[in-house]
Design a protein around this nucleic acid. Structure first.
Lengths: 220, 220
DNA sequence: GTCTATAAAGTGATAGAC
DNA sequence: GTCTATCACTTTATAGAC
């Protein structure tokens, strides 16, 4: 929306190559919220562009088609989530005597952090939807952008829980992921008491989730 | 489809009041599968009636509108699930020294039983979707047809886990429900080994889920 | 890059014949 | 109860002016 392409700038002033940066971001932001609220099919490009305050044709210009937009919206935070999880796992594996709770911390904490970002809860709700969707293309996209991280965590869990068979382990991880995703999509998130600071509440929630997951994952 | 309205039957032969019973059921069945696969918005009445082998107008004739159809599809198995859960809880509460695992059994076993019925997995996938949907009307419908059962279980859990605050308890129940729903929607269900009978495998899965839930719910 | 206008196909719903 | 035909809209996507 905000014009930044100055066709005739005075010499010496750096010229932006990508003319408008705002439009694309505004679409992504509006899309995240609307997809979370109405679903991928339920949210039309019309309400989306209208909410973003941009022209209808802008979506096709910037993203090609609706499906590519969905991918970009997912990828934006999924990349961040993956990067943070990997970094956290790197850090945990660097120590000796790694515990189950430490690995779960590396898995859960980045997810919660993102869900606390502005718009992050919308993203988590979108992700919950994406899990429930059985659309083949979407699942393939998720597995391509998500699978390698899950496999690294699975390997680490397998090392810490050698008594579990591979099938059993994957199944328990699915249970944990299901609990985590639906919980974070805010459909019944634990409420913060007035006297507790936001920071402290996040830490408390994270600890709760980790212990819930550890209890379920690590039984005989 | 199959005509059963005989306008001029010989006296004494009982006359069916509801003329065709098949069409309605075929729509419900096709709807369950298509809603699970494509979502409530994604599945159109056209593919739905086409898959059911009935006329497009039949949906509006039998159900009024698409939304009412969705409600009927949900209600059909939800009623069954609620009835069975209530009966199981009645039975458990009839005994003294009720354990957490027994109550969880009453909560989890009926859900798994239904998911093993023909078309039951579709239903669970549909339910997972419905949880992720934020549609106000749908949520209200679910709470009206689901809430009283959840409250009874919550009361029982509260009695067995008095050290938990109300907020904490509801939050843990959400985690359990999230895990259960996503797991049963078949997105990563544990596979049955060849040599195990189907019956035994179901029992095994039920026991696993109950213990997972019990471990998560009942910690300090 | 952004706009308008429009194409092309799909949507839920209904009137009215049978 | 079931059918065809159709209404009134909405959808995604694109062509072409600016």
């Amino acid at each position: 929306m905000i014009k930044r392409s100055f066709k005739s700038l005075p010499r010496g002033v750096p010229r932006k190559v990508t003319a408008t940066v705002a439009t694309k971001d505004r679409i992504l932001q509006a899309a995240e919220e609307l997809f979370a609220r109405r679903g991928f099919d339920g949210a039309s490009l019309r309400e989306l562009t209208s909410a973003a305050g941009v022209n209808l044709a802008a979506v096709n210009y910037h993203f090609g088609c609706k499906e590519k937009l969905i991918e970009q919206v997912l990828r934006r935070r999924l990349d961040l989530l993956n990067t943070r999880r990997m970094a956290a796992l790197d850090h945990v594996e660097g120590q000796h005597d790694t515990t189950l709770e430490q690995v779960l911390d590396a898995y859960i904490r980045p997810a919660l952090e993102i869900s606390y970002d502005v718009g992050g809860e919308c993203f988590m709700r979108m992700l919950a939807r994406a899990f429930a969707e059985r659309d083949e293309r979407l699942r393939e996209f998720l597995s391509q952008n998500y699978g390698h991280v899950m496999r690294r965590f699975a390997a680490e869990f397998a090392r810490l829980l050698p008594h579990l068979g591979k099938v059993e382990l994957y199944w328990r991880m699915d249970l944990v992921t299901g609990a985590l995703t639906l919980a974070m999509s805010g459909f019944g998130m634990i409420q913060r008491a007035e006297e507790v600071s936001e920071q402290a509440h996040h830490e408390q929630t994270t600890r709760h989730l980790i212990r819930f997951a550890a209890a379920g994952l690590g039984q005989p």
